[in-house]
């Protein structure tokens, strides 16, 4: 994925067809992080505030999931060009796409057992898809971050 330009407050990216398929595959994995994984505090016991946090995060996931479906089914966001596909996103959309991709990255890391070291890729291993998903998600994240950092 390559950042192209900002036009009328929208960010334009070039993707090869294969990259678009990978991005769609990753985003459709969302959500991966187990629900109620996050805790409000390390020191206190779960209480009403923890319950409210869990509910708020669950609502956020539902909302993001709907946005993912809407985005991926919106042809105006993905225009065919002679060289591949041009994707356009607003700054606000980039924020939740980053959240979605990071959920996929962190969620797959959790599925790998939350290793301290970056997991090595072994194509024969059963957990190879998790390692690949982590790496792909971070590549797209970095491309999005680079685009907004330089504006």
């Amino acid at each position: 994925m390559k950042f192209l330009r900002v036009e009328k407050e929208r960010y334009f990216f070039h993707l090869a067809h294969r990259e678009k398929a990978l991005l769609e595959f990753l985003m459709r994995l969302y959500p991966v992080i187990p629900s109620a994984h996050q805790t409000l505090s390390k020191s206190s016991t779960p209480d009403e505030s923890q319950k409210l946090l869990n509910e708020a995060l669950a609502e956020q996931r539902r909302e993001n999931k709907q946005l993912v479906d809407k985005l991926l089914n919106d042809d105006r966001r993905f225009q065919e060009t002679t060289k591949g596909i041009e994707m356009n996103l607003s700054a606000g959309e980039i924020e939740w796409v980053l959240q979605v991709l990071n959920d996929v990255r962190v969620g797959n890391w959790i599925l790998l057992g939350s290793p301290e070291e970056h997991p090595r890729f072994d194509p024969e291993a059963a957990d190879a898809p998790y390692v690949v998903a982590m790496g792909l998600a971070s590549n797209f994240q970095m491309d999005l971050l680079d685009a907004i950092k330089h504006q």
């Binding site: 505090s41 946090l53 708020a56 995060l57 959240q99």
Partner: peptide, 14 residues
């Protein structure tokens, strides 16, 4: 904390 956890960061309040 909620905002940070929306982004899947490991954040808590103490």
């Amino acid at each position: 904390v909620h905002q940070l956890q929306k982004y899947s960061l490991h954040a808590t309040m103490e």
